[in-house]
Structures are given as C-alpha cells and as structure tokens.
C-alpha cells in the first residue's frame, strides 16, 4: 500500500474545472516530483490533497485513511503537511512563534523536532526572536519548511520551494530536502526547476491542463523528448516556461 494514493481527483474553482481527474501514488520513503507548466494544476492538486480545497469528485487516501472529506486541520494531524506556494509564513510574528505554531497540535513544543530544525537550518536559531517578515526570501523559505517539520510529518508536500531564490540558495534548499527525506520523511515536490526536481526525485508526474500527461522514473522522463523540450529547455521549447 502506498502512503498517498490519489484517484481520479477533480477540483474546480466555481464552474471552472482545474483538475480533470488526476491519479498519482507516493510510496513510503520516496521523493516524487510533480512537474508542469504554469497553470497546469500543480498547486490545485497539492491544495486539494492537504484539504484546503474540496474535490468535486475522486478520492485521496493517506496512510490507509480516506482524507478527501476531512478538514485541513485534521489532515495535518495525521502526518501530512503542506508547505504552500508563496511560503505563507506568519510575517508579523517571530521566527519562534512560527515554529511553535507548527507544533500547535501537540500539547507542548517537541524539543527533538526543534533541535532537528535548528540543525537543518542553523540560521533560524540565530534569528529566533526576529519578526519573520524581516527575514530574507531564502530564510523565509527555510522557515516555511522548518515550521512544517515541527508538525513531524510523514509526508511533506512542497510547492515550488525554490521560487524566487538565488541559485546558491536553490541548491541549499534542494540538498536540505534530500536530507529531510533521508531522515525518513516522504516528499511530494512541485518544482519549476524541472532538472533539479528530476535529479532529486525518484519518480515524477507531468501535469498538463489538469491531467497527468506523463509519469515514470525520473531518469526515463529526463530522456523523454517531450519533457526535454517543454520543461528542461532542451531544443525548441513547445511553450514558454513560466
């Protein structure tokens, strides 16, 4: 049984359908990438899985439990945590408060989780008392991931964690995600930087217009002519990369 199973998921904004029935699986311990052009439906897919959006039809199963009708605050308690696109840190609150909010479901802040987060992101320890909105973009992304780790997730959904970051920070974030995965957290990552995502992930899905267009091991997809042209910027691009 897979840790996450998504079956024929249909999600709409009002009368406009953004996902037309996608299915995907993530096995325990894997890193899986979700690729696709701007507007393909990647964010919508993650938001539906984490419970921020209600699907019109289809099913989401996590660790053997059906979760597509559950509210978001319940789903995170089951061990599925979503690091949203745009980070959504609590900008007027301190780094420390942001991290403590990650541990909201627990009676007290778990010291082990806090230690692990500060080992992964030593910079956050230095900035504990700082107001989160004054952090640099890279630090804010670190905080978004760190805050999610405070929920002690089994599965981490990451939506474009490298967006807007300088190349050196992109590398740092990607390395950290690999490290988080080595420690036992399963990862489903949406990434604009398709080459980095394909190197990081074992398998990948390619979304096009709300449908899964391709899927397979990363190595195979990296060789696929369509993927190379559309997402890896090799040869004549079929469409502009957003």
């Amino acid at each position: 049984m897979n840790l996450l199973e998504v079956r024929n998921l249909v999600t709409a904004y009002g009368s406009i359908e953004a996902l037309h029935g996608i299915s995907l699986d993530v096995a325990d311990g894997e890193i899986v990438a979700l690729l696709g052009a701007n507007g393909a439906g990647k964010t919508t897919a993650l938001r539906t899985i984490s419970g921020l959006l209600r699907p019109r039809s289809g099913e989401v199963w996590f660790a053997g439990a059906r979760i597509d009708r559950r509210p978001a605050h319940d789903i995170v308690r089951l061990g599925l945590t979503h690091v949203p696109e745009g980070r959504w840190i609590f900008s007027l609150m301190t780094v420390d408060e942001n991290l403590r909010l990650g541990a909201y479901a627990e009676p007290r802040v778990p010291q082990a989780a806090l230690d692990r987060v500060f080992t992964l992101f030593p910079r956050l320890r230095e900035r504990r008392a700082q107001v989160a909105g004054t952090l640099s973009g890279g630090e804010q992304q670190m905080l978004a991931i760190a805050r999610a780790l405070m929920t002690r997730p089994r599965l981490l959904l990451l939506d474009e964690p490298s967006m807007g970051l300088a190349p050196v920070l992109v590398r740092l974030i990607i390395q950290t995600i690999a490290e988080i995965n080595r420690d036992g957290t399963t990862v489903l990552i949406v990434e604009q930087n398709a080459s980095a995502a394909l190197r990081l992930a074992r398998r990948a899905y390619v979304l096009e217009n709300g449908r899964v267009a391709l899927e397979g091991p990363s190595a195979d997809l990296a060789k696929n002519e369509r993927v190379r042209q559309a997402y890896l910027g090799v040869g004549a691009p079929l469409r502009a990369q957003g």
Binding site: P71, V76, H82, P84, W88, F90, S91, L92, M93, T151
Partner: peptide
Amino acid sequence: RALAINQDAARLMGI
C-alpha cells in the same frame, strides 16, 4: 493572531 494574518496557513498548522 496567526489566523488574522493568513487563515489558510493557520489551517495548515492544524488550527
């Protein structure tokens, strides 16, 4: 305070 800043982000924290 968290949900005053961003309600969906608060939900993602289990609130």
